[in-house]
């Protein structure tokens, strides 16, 4: 599995980063497994209906309730690996302190949005739990799915906090490569990584070349 460069060391920040990453990875795998299960369920639905005239009762209701797993649980994992898309046509041109400052601002803005949404989505869950809400067909309660949202966004908020500290430290100390944050990559490196991720393995491996486990050699091309 390809991963973006995230530098680690023995600091507390890096330890926190790796601990949280473990949780994030588990949740992301759960999301993947739900995608897989959904595919199998859809096939079961077709076969059940066509062959046995036994459709899965409330199939759509079930799918809608479980979608929240893959729509949200991986959100912090994706942020850890720098996977949420952005335009780096400008930010890709600066380095050092100005770059870390821009990152600090970006992460702070994200924290404001995510923080407000954690609260708002918690209230949305709370209404469903206390007043009541259920699905259209087989009246499944919706609160468990609604609860997933503030939980996943809460974890994302923690992840952002780690990144804020990482970038903040880099800004103050004028670090070259900060700890616990995904490195900005130029368009060529991003494209290559996306291509690798699209196949779930490294192109370098396929080409029979070695692969730097931290991907530190990917910084080449357009920017230099």
């Amino acid at each position: 599995m390809a991963s973006t460069t995230v530098r680690t060391d023995d600091s507390l920040l890096s330890k926190a980063d790796r601990q949280i990453f473990r949780v994030e990875s588990t949740l992301n795998l759960m999301a993947g497994l739900v995608v897989f299960t959904l595919m199998i369920l859809a096939v079961a639905q077709i076969v059940g209906r066509k062959v046995f005239n036994l459709p899965i009762p409330g199939f759509i209701d079930w799918v809608e309730q479980f979608m929240v797993v893959f729509a949200f649980l991986g959100v912090a994992y994706c942020q850890r690996l720098g996977g949420h898309i952005r335009m780096d046509i400008l930010i890709g041109r600066v380095r050092g302190r100005p770059l870390w400052l821009a990152e600090v601002v970006g992460v702070l803005l994200m924290m404001i949005a995510v923080g407000a949404l954690v609260y708002g989505s918690y209230l949305h869950f709370e209404r469903a739990l206390t007043i009541g809400d259920s699905t259209i067909d087989i009246a499944l309660p919706t609160w468990p799915a609604k609860l997933m949202v503030p939980v996943a966004l809460g974890l994302l908020w923690l992840r952002l906090l780690v990144q804020l500290i990482g970038y903040g430290r880099a800004f103050i100390n004028g670090e070259e490569i900060p700890i616990a944050v995904p490195m900005i990559e130029d368009a060529a490196a991003v494209a290559k990584r996306e291509a690798e991720e699209a196949m779930g393995l490294s192109l370098d491996e396929l080409e029979g070349r070695g692969k730097d486990p931290d991907g530190g050699d990917k910084d080449k091309g357009a920017r230099s």
Binding site: L29, G32, F70, G74, Y77, C78, L81, E197
Partner: peptide
């Protein structure tokens, strides 16, 4: 590996 990457792209 495929599931992890699919999930990451999906959540994005």
């Amino acid at each position: 590996g495929a599931l992890m990457e699919s999930a990451k792209l999906t959540v994005m």
